[in-house]
Computed example of a mutant assay.
Amino acid sequence: MTTGPITSRGDRPFGVIEPSPAAFGVYVHIPFCSVRCGYCDFNTYTADELGDGATRASYADTAISEIGLQRRAFSDLPEAETVFFGGGTPTQLPAADLVRMLSTLRDTFGLADGVEVTTEANPDSVTPESLAALREGGFNRISFGVQSAVPHVLATLDRTHDPANVPQAVKWAREAGFDQLSVDLIYGTPGESMDDWRTSVEQAIALQPDHVSAYALIVEQGTAFARKVNRGEVVMPDDDETADKYLLADELLGAAGLSWYELSNWARDATSQCRHNVLYWHSDNWLGIGPGAHSHVDGERWWNVKHPAAYAQRLAAGESPRHDGETIDTETARVERIMLETRLRGGLGLDALSPSATVTIPDLVSRGLADVAADRLVLTLRGRLLADAVIRELVD
């Protein structure tokens, strides 16, 4: 990976990672959770929802068979620079299974020198022994799903972990030798006060993470949470309150030495940015392993069948788990570049804009939503709060 332009926060330099032209990563989806959170619309399942044909005990072998299939289909891909185990809760599986899958990726695709290998984890789903096994097996980055430090907020989100256990889990991860540690937070939960949110951010900072992600809660249709909102059982905060919480997070994280590099992500320096997500944001190449996993290679995008049982049945029969796909044409690629790069601290290259869209730039600058530097459009703090509206103007 190379480091691009250097910007600064005060007197502290902060690099913006630009992926190499041949950047390639692998995403491994682990679709298991102990409890389905009411707000979640990810492709995840509890044990009761799986049915026949898919078990946690057999999952690693099934995923390993897909890795072999993908290697045969893509023999010319370079070594992986990033690997990300997400879900679901990857640490619902034994550490040995996660290590076996990673070892298979190393043996088949190869892992580049300095590869970033991440696993997501619930704080209550790890032990000193499991973390030590993961680190010894090649994992070097861990992302804890903390979401909130306030019990009543966690209860609203259907999160089951005890916030008092988070510092212990982080301590174990550090002792195991993880190079990078990230914390995920959610703001805008119904009933969450500004003081609640401040508590969550301050307690996250006290963990001394290398990276923090903070996402506004989105009501996804079809979820249990959406049904509660539609019935009026819970009331979402207004946009002004949500914006105030974003500003508070940015202020507190910045004062603690973490700088934003994407709208919802802050890192201590360029080396602490999530290189796997940077790869997504620059539309580089990646393979997705697992049910419902998406892949993108050289302008082709496809995705696997969603249900773990159907996924396992196809692979057991020696068939591809691919469900559908599409070829990304030039205009679609341009629009997606605008949607993704505008969110980044490095900004959007002006060459991505259509001639008609360029007339929007002076207006965005005059409204204090963006600046232009070195032929790139960069959001201001106000622009970050209104990023979706800015992107719509650039695309239209």
Rank of each mutant, 00 (worst) to 15 (best):
R106I: 04
M194S: 14
E175W: 00
K245W: 02
A255R: 09
D250G: 07
E233W: 09
R343I: 01
L217K: 04
A374G: 05
T2M: 12
R392L: 14
A309F: 06
A312S: 15
D396P: 12
R345E: 08
H29Q: 07
K245S: 07
F32V: 06
K245A: 11
I17S: 05
S272T: 13
H276N: 05
M101C: 14
D375W: 02
Q313R: 14
S356C: 05
A216P: 01
N230L: 14
V219W: 06
A216L: 06
T89G: 09
A95S: 12
L353W: 00
I338F: 00
D179Y: 00
E233R: 08
A23G: 03
S200V: 02
L287G: 04
E18M: 10
A132V: 01
P5I: 13
G257V: 05
S356A: 15
P78K: 09
V335A: 14
D179M: 03
D162F: 07
P308Q: 08
A270F: 08
P19A: 10
Y187G: 03
G88Y: 06
I338S: 00
A80M: 10
S295W: 02
D196A: 08
S366H: 14
A224H: 04
R56L: 13
L287H: 03
H152T: 12
P78M: 10
R231S: 14
E49N: 06
V212G: 03
V335R: 15
A149G: 02
D250C: 09
S193I: 06
S143I: 07
V305N: 08
T119N: 12
A23Y: 04
A316S: 14
A133P: 03
G110T: 11
S366L: 11
Y261N: 02
A133C: 10
L69Y: 01
W197Y: 07
L340P: 01
D195M: 08
D298F: 04
G25S: 14
G110K: 12
W260M: 12
E300S: 13
D329C: 06
T327Y: 03
T3V: 15
D113R: 13
T104R: 15
A80C: 10
S182W: 00
G10N: 10
I289Y: 02
D97I: 08
L287N: 03
P151G: 04
Y45I: 05
A47T: 03
G145F: 11
A96P: 04
I17E: 08
N304L: 09
D11N: 12
H29G: 07
I205R: 07
N285W: 01
D48L: 06
A373L: 13
L102H: 02
V117S: 10
D351M: 03
S272A: 15
W197P: 06
V115H: 10
G257S: 05
T360S: 13
P94C: 07
A96Y: 01
L253C: 02
A267N: 00
C274H: 13
I186G: 02
V16G: 09
W197C: 06
D107M: 07
A204M: 03
E202C: 11
S264F: 11
S34E: 13
I6C: 07
N285F: 00
E326L: 11
L111R: 12
G137D: 07
A214L: 10
V16W: 07
R198F: 01
H161D: 11
S34R: 15
W303M: 12
D375N: 15
R268K: 13
A387M: 12
P190T: 10
